[in-house]
């Protein structure tokens, strides 16, 4: 069987290289019974288009941002709420416990999750230093189109965000239509957005994740043994990608600093103010059924426990 998998990630990136290597390994180990064909660079359209094409069977899978899975299952959003995590260690510890939950929730909707990947922390980057939500209110803040979490976060802080598709961000930064973005370091550099900002607020706003999902009906056409091979090799590939990604993000941070971008440190007071704001956001998102409230409470509780530990 051939699994056609589409993604917005461009070809030639280290991420795609790992994915291609995994595909080659799968082909070898299954003696050619399972082939994976990638469509990188958004040639199959947006994440939404990719999900539509999976539904009609043109594609069997997609590597998508978890944000695009919101209408399939709110479970996919539990890592992406604002100011949830402070460090990558926290993310990793939580993932061990909560990844299986996301996987099983998506399975109920007919999707096999081959892997969840970390895309790093997103920071506020701007032409002016942003310390408080008052500072943010003076800025023209971009949020990705359809990003309900981002929109609600800023609206709660009294900021009317400007939503634009990804493709319009660079030009809009250039023309000044927007002057503040929320993005992870390596993407900011890859998209050249970093050339248009001067400051990074050094306090992670939210954690970004992506996932490869495959249509269950298509996946079940593969023999059980081969399914196991696909899952194992993909899991290994995703583990190595997370390690690579961590390195890339660290490198990108250095590159930002080298490019003369200043990292704005926040006082404890400011941090607390942001986290309080986040509580309001999380409550409001709960009423919109954007994420599973009970599970997220458990996640927060686990984090609290971890932070209490010496």
């Amino acid at each position: 069987a051939t699994l056609k998998i589409a993604t917005l990630a461009p070809d030639g990136t280290s991420w795609m290289k790992v994915m291609r290597q995994a595909a080659a390994d799968i082909k070898t180990e299954t003696e050619g019974r399972v082939k994976i064909k990638y469509f990188p660079g958004g040639v199959q359209g947006s994440d939404k288009s990719v999900l539509r094409k999976m539904r009609i069977g043109q594609l069997q899978g997609g590597a998508v941002a978890t944000g695009s899975l919101i209408n399939i299952s709110p479970a996919s959003q539990i890592y992406n709420l604002p100011f949830t995590f402070r460090t990558l260690e926290e993310v990793r510890a939580i993932r061990e416990e909560f990844d299986p939950y996301i996987v099983s929730e998506l399975a109920k909707k007919g999707y096999v999750v081959l892997g969840i990947s970390e895309a790093g922390f997103a920071y506020m980057m701007s032409d002016e230093p942003i310390r408080t939500s008052d500072d943010a209110r003076k800025q023209k803040v971009w949020v990705p189109e359809g990003d309900l979490i981002g929109e609600t976060t800023f609206e709660n802080g009294g900021v009317e965000p400007i939503s634009l598709p990804l493709s319009d961000v660079y030009t809009s930064l250039q023309t000044g239509l927007i002057d503040t973005i929320v993005v992870n370091a390596s993407s900011a550099i890859a998209l050249q957005w970093h050339t248009k900002v001067n400051y990074v607020t050094d306090f992670p706003l939210l954690f970004l994740t992506g996932a490869i999902i495959v249509d269950q009906k298509a996946f079940r056409k593969i023999s059980t043994e081969d399914q196991a091979v696909v899952k194992r090799i993909m899991a290994e590939a995703f583990a190595s990608m997370d390690a690579q990604n961590e390195k890339d993000e660290a490198g990108a941070r250095d590159a930002l600093a080298q490019n003369g971008i200043e990292f704005v440190e926040l006082s404890e007071e400011d941090k607390q103010a942001w986290e309080e704001l986040a509580t309001g956001v999380v409550d409001e998102l709960a009423s919109k059924e954007i994420y599973p409230v009970e599970v997220f409470k458990r996640l927060q509780q686990r984090l609290e426990e971890m932070r209490q530990e010496p």
């Binding site: 359209g45 939404k48 288009s49 539509r52 094409k53 634009l164």
Partner: peptide
């Protein structure tokens, strides 16, 4: 052997290009 419903998905992409 791709379902021809794909035509609708592609045509609808016109509504995804700002």
């Amino acid at each position: 052997e791709v379902d021809l419903q794909v035509m609708a998905v592609e045509i609808y992409r016109v509504a995804e290009m700002p």
